[in-house]
Design a binder for these strands. Structure first.
Length: 376
RNA sequence: GGGGAGAUACCAAAGUGGCCAACUGGGGCAGACUGUAACUCUGCUGGCGUACGCCUUCGUAGGUUCGAAUCCUGCUCUCCCCA
């Protein structure tokens, strides 16, 4: 796996590049749809590829481990074979579940003990086991096992949490070295910078991490409850420390505005459940702001879902019909909204890339941020 | 014709003397959602007021009572059973 930088503008840290993987090239900046349980909820692989233009998707270690279980995925020949997605796959390590399932897990030096949210059964995740599982899933990009520190963590907690994440990282690296790819393609480990909302912790974490040779570096523990300004401030601290010639992945972010702001600060890769989850809940993202399609005002609006949209669903269906579907809890509504939102997200990063390459990113971004913040 | 049951807010349905502007669902109207325990969650839903509150409501007309959605009487309507 290697990364080629195509262009870097003078008045912004934004970059355009290409990340080459054995399952295909990824043009950055990129948004990666989240497919927690092996599927991007409600979206066919064909539409992901041909209509939405996704270049890489996510899977989740914790969820896939619980269901269908690692054995089944191995028997299938890896997640690519299992779900039919032939492009690159990145798996989250379960570090986010350490955060989101805080009530039913316990952290120790050894790892994280979870109680399954499905049946209550008890499971231990260690840095080693998490690497092994991701190997078996067949991820192109394997994420280090970390503790995703809550956004409101006090300094002392964030510091301890970071130290644990760093010790776990060393064990992840060691386990990667001791093990081999499962299905004949390369698997790369991305370390993760934590440190809460504390610049000195973030700086130390970033410096610590770049000592580990990797094909890419991630920033985690943001957009988890902290003020938006803190998120940007942490990116400002960390991104300049990370190697220029490696992709930078901001985990779990975010809103369209978040993404543009982060691209401006030198981030290359993003993922977020927002386009799919919020889509299912009736929120549409457009160039001109967000739409709550459940609102009464759309009931008799027979114009296309999105006049400027790039997906077929944007022109195939009207706002009124989509509202009807969502309000009626018809599953097609979730599908259309998700497909629209993902298409918009992929359009957004593609357009950002074009603007970077033509040297107009900064101006374009400033205009877009204003438009995107509107509510229609 | 005889017997029985019932009429509560947009719908359904609790409430059978004061804690009732009235439980709870649904519907409606808004809001939230950031490495997915999420087709989920939260709020509001008689009128006016930010709020304390005030006003008008439980088929309808009267009555009893300090006080009625709740008790009594007449009327109207609905449903069930038997002829």
């Amino acid at each position: 796996m290697n990364f080629t930088l195509k262009h870097q503008a003078f008045n912004t840290a934004a970059r355009a590049g290409v990340l080459h993987t054995e399952h295909g090239d990824i043009e950055t900046p990129i948004f990666m749809p989240v497919g927690t349980a092996g599927s991007v909820k409600g979206i066919h692989v064909r539409d992901l590829k041909d209509d939405i233009g996704a270049q890489i998707i996510l899977g989740n270690t914790y969820h896939l481990y619980l269901r269908p279980g690692t054995d089944i995925i191995e028997q299938a020949g890896g997640l690519h074979k299992f779900n039919g997605w032939s492009g690159p796959i990145l798996t989250d390590s379960g570090g986010y579940q350490v955060f989101s399932l805080g009530d039913i897990r316990k952290l120790t030096e050894e790892g994280a003990r979870f109680q399954s949210h499905i049946d209550g059964s008890r499971h231990l995740f260690t840095p080693e086991s998490v690497i092994d599982i991701q190997r078996k899933i067949g991820a192109d990009i394997i994420m280090a096992f970390d503790e995703c520190t809550p956004g409101d963590a006090e300094y002392d907690y964030a510091k301890k949490s970071l130290a644990l994440t760093q010790r776990w990282l060393d064990r992840c690296v060691e386990q990667m070295e001791k093990t081999q790819p499962r299905y004949g393609h390369q698997q790369s480990l991305f370390p993760i910078v934590q440190g809460g909302v504390y610049p000195d912790l973030r700086e130390a974490a970033a410096k610590n991490i770049i000592a580990i040779p990797s094909d890419g570096y991630a920033i985690g523990g943001l957009s988890v409850g902290e003020p938006e300004a803190d998120m940007y401030a942490m990116i400002d601290v960390v991104a300049p420390i990370l190697p220029q010639d490696k992709p930078r992945y901001l985990m779990g972010v975010g809103t369209p505005v978040n993404i543009l702001e982060a691209i401006d600060r030198g981030i290359d890769m993003f993922d977020c459940v927002m386009p799919t989850r919020n889509g299912r809940n009736g929120m549409l993202f457009t160039q001109n702001g967000t739409i709550n399609i459940k609102n009464k005002r759309w009931a008799d609006d027979f114009s296309p879902v999105d006049q400027d949209g790039t997906s077929f669903v944007d022109h195939q269906y009207s706002k009124a019909f989509l509202r009807h579907l969502i309000v009626s809890n018809e599953m097609l509504g979730s599908q259309i909204a998700s497909q629209h939102n993902l298409s918009f997200y992929l359009w957004l990063v593609k357009e950002a890339r074009t603007q970077i390459l033509t040297g107009n990113f900064k101006n374009w971004k400033e205009e877009m941020v204003i438009k995107l913040a509107q509510r229609l």
